[in-house]
Simulated assay, not measured.
Amino acid sequence: MDKLVYTAMTGARHILDQQATTANNLANATTNGFRAQLDTFRAVPVVAEGLPTRTFVVGNTVGADYRAGPIETTGRPLDVAVRGEGWLAVQSTDGSEAYTRAGGLKISENGLLQTSGGLTLQGENGPIAVPPNMEVNIAADGTVSGIDTSQTQPGPANVLGRIKLVNPPTAGLVRGDDGLFRQTSGEVAQADQGVRLADGCLEGSNVNPVDAMVSMIALARSFDTQMSLLKNAENNAAKASQILALN
């Protein structure tokens, strides 16, 4: 069998991987705080007898696009968006600390401040509990305060806690299967006092739907090219079999 089959196969396989990544990005084009996934590949020459005229395609790096998404004003007090670089610290389902940019918050039935997906938001001193009948306000530095609305004369605001805001180097972050980011070292990031929030706002996805659609079309054409190479290899093998049969 011609070695072209193997080289074309590796190209087609990784094109399918890229298509899956692009499709996932396109599906999350409206997900708040989503960071587009990036797949990079490289061509490696086949080391064998003769000239290195063939190459294999191998996966190189899987990363994320950390550019900020557009900020939309909602006017909802529990909606926050990170200005510039930084992350919100949350407690993932396995109990570990993870990081997200999705700032649509809510108050759970137990009075804990959580993300819209039900993950408990981490405060600098643990989870932030909100007592009943509290009108919550979130400051730019992450300080959560509340005013008791059950009284006829509202009193002063009470500080309930401070959201843990972190800004670890993006080179040391990795996206998990749950869509949350963690440090590759496994360590917990320290709170960064320089991270700022915008209240009453949400950050959108940084996926450009037009670019994603163009990428899908280009990948489909590249996949067709790889299939054409496999067809040519099949035809070459058939012609060679005919010649050998004549001999």
Rank of each mutant, 00 (worst) to 15 (best):
E124C: 12
T120P: 14
L113E: 04
G142T: 11
N133K: 03
G142N: 06
G123A: 13
T120F: 12
G142V: 03
Q122E: 15
P131H: 03
I128E: 04
T120G: 10
I128A: 04
I147W: 03
M134I: 11
N125L: 07
T143N: 10
L119P: 09
V136S: 07
D141N: 12
V136C: 09
V130S: 11
V144T: 04
A139Q: 10
G126C: 05
I147C: 06
A140G: 05
G142W: 05
I147A: 09
P127V: 08
T115L: 02
G146R: 09
G118M: 09
N137I: 02
I138C: 04
T115P: 00
G126I: 00
P127I: 06
N125C: 05
P127M: 14
N125V: 12
S116M: 06
I147L: 00
Q122I: 01
I138G: 00
L119K: 02
Q114K: 07
N125F: 06
N133V: 02
S116L: 13
V136Y: 02
G126S: 07
Q114S: 09
G142F: 08
G111D: 09
I147V: 07
L119Y: 09
G123Q: 08
Q114D: 11
A129K: 15
A140I: 03
A139G: 07
A140N: 10
T115K: 06
T115C: 00
P127D: 14
N137A: 15
G118I: 13
M134T: 11
G117P: 08
T143G: 12
V130F: 08
V136E: 00
N137W: 05
P127C: 14
G142Q: 08
V130H: 05
G123F: 00
P132H: 08
N137R: 15
T120H: 13
